[in-house]
């Protein structure tokens, strides 16, 4: 990667100024540039972020904590423009969920030159000050392991709904799910298809699969968005035996776990992630040690009954699992795990 002279100069300056650029003036300004703002996960994420800013500002009167978010609406060009404008504004911390990380290398350098802490969201960046990652492979694997443990040892057919072709997050989750399933012999993948994060496409897929595979036992997905249409179609066609394995920790999905057909989910929750951002920014601001590549804590969710059964069937005891009540609690209230109390 070649840099222009200005960005190279910026790099030198940024390195010279180091981490002393902030923390002195008792203010913390955080900007979050996201790739979208209308998907349910994004809505929860952005409002969690807003709530956390307000809560931290009240909890720590010594520091004036402000923040705002921007949405690039899926356009890389727009995201770059927003990042440029934001750098010119000199906030203290920038979270950027880059659509393409390589395109942002020059901007990371510019931000460093301006003394801004750059946190790369989801896709890690070597040059960034920090990266906030999801552990998608690990999470996917946990979902696969849960499937093995709850499949009951008999031949078990699963169909997987994937993300958009070429999407790194979706690919990582897919890879993890397959790794988890591989640990047992009875679970067989009979079909996998991208549904492009689109519920309508997911609905079509679910309909096709249920007619095509009468002996289907489970549908797995890389997002909870796929679960809503799948569950509805299974109910309509009387497939009460079908199991569902989700990913995201959407509250309506978790609510269907106790005695229901949804067996396991990965608890991301946009609300939690938004709160975690602010917590992370505050910790950096206060000079606490934060890992350069920070993994968002995303436990597996199962009902108590299913967890007991899973443990009996050899599910590893060291994997953290939340029960439904706890998951619902923390998913709705990000401050339980990431609130001001967590850093006091």
């Amino acid at each position: 990667m070649k840099f222009t002279s200005t960005t190279a100069l910026g790099l030198v300056l940024g390195a010279a100024m180091g981490t002393t650029a902030f923390a002195s003036d008792g203010k913390l300004d955080i900007v979050f540039i996201n790739d979208g703002h209308v998907a349910p996960y994004h809505v929860a994420w952005l409002s969690g972020f807003e709530d956390a800013i307000a809560a931290y500002d009240t909890a720590f009167p010594d520091t004036k904590i402000t923040g705002r978010w921007l949405s690039a609406e899926g356009s890389l060009e727009k995201m770059i423009q927003q990042a440029e404008v934001t750098i010119n504004e000199k906030p203290d911390v920038m979270f950027v969920n880059a659509i393409n990380v390589d395109a942002f290398e020059p901007l990371v350098a510019k931000a460093k030159a301006a003394g801004i802490v750059w946190i790369a969201v989801h896709s890690p960046m070597e040059s960034a000050d920090y990266s906030f990652t999801l552990g998608d492979v690990e999470n996917g694997k946990n979902q696969g392991l849960a499937m093995c443990a709850l499949s009951g040892g008999k031949p078990f057919n699963v169909a997987i709904m994937l993300g958009q072709a070429g999407n790194p997050s979706g690919d990582a989750r897919h890879q993890g799910i397959l790794e988890g399933i591989k640990t047992c012999d009875n679970v067989k993948v009979v079909a996998e298809q991208p549904a492009d994060w689109d519920t309508v496409k997911a609905q079509t897929l679910a309909e096709n699969w249920m007619t095509q595979f009468p002996d289907l036992n489970a549908i797995s997905g890389v997002t909870d968005g796929y679960m809503y249409p799948s569950i509805a179609i299974a109910a309509n066609s009387g497939r009460t035996d079908l199991q569902f394995y989700g990913y995201d920790g959407d509250i309506p999905i978790i609510q269907q776990m106790e005695g229901g057909q949804v067996k396991a989910d990965i608890l991301l929750s946009g609300t939690r992630e938004g709160w975690n951002f602010v917590q992370m920014a505050y910790r950096i601001h206060m000079g606490q040690e934060v890992e350069k590549v920070y993994d968002f804590f995303t436990p597996l969710v199962m009902s108590d009954e299913n967890y007991a059964l899973a443990l009996k069937n050899g599910f590893p005891a060291d994997i953290e699992v939340y029960n439904v009540a706890k998951a619902l609690d923390v998913a709705a209230k990000g401050d339980i795990e990431f609130g001001p109390d967590s850093v006091k």
Binding site: M1, E73, G74, S75, L76, E77, I80, I99, N100, D102, A103, E105, P106
Partner: peptide, 16 residues
């Protein structure tokens, strides 16, 4: 110009 701006070729560039 777009490629120069994002230092990469993007299949989704020029959206809208």
């Amino acid at each position: 110009v777009t490629v120069g701006r994002v230092s990469s070729g993007q299949p989704w560039s020029g959206l809208y």
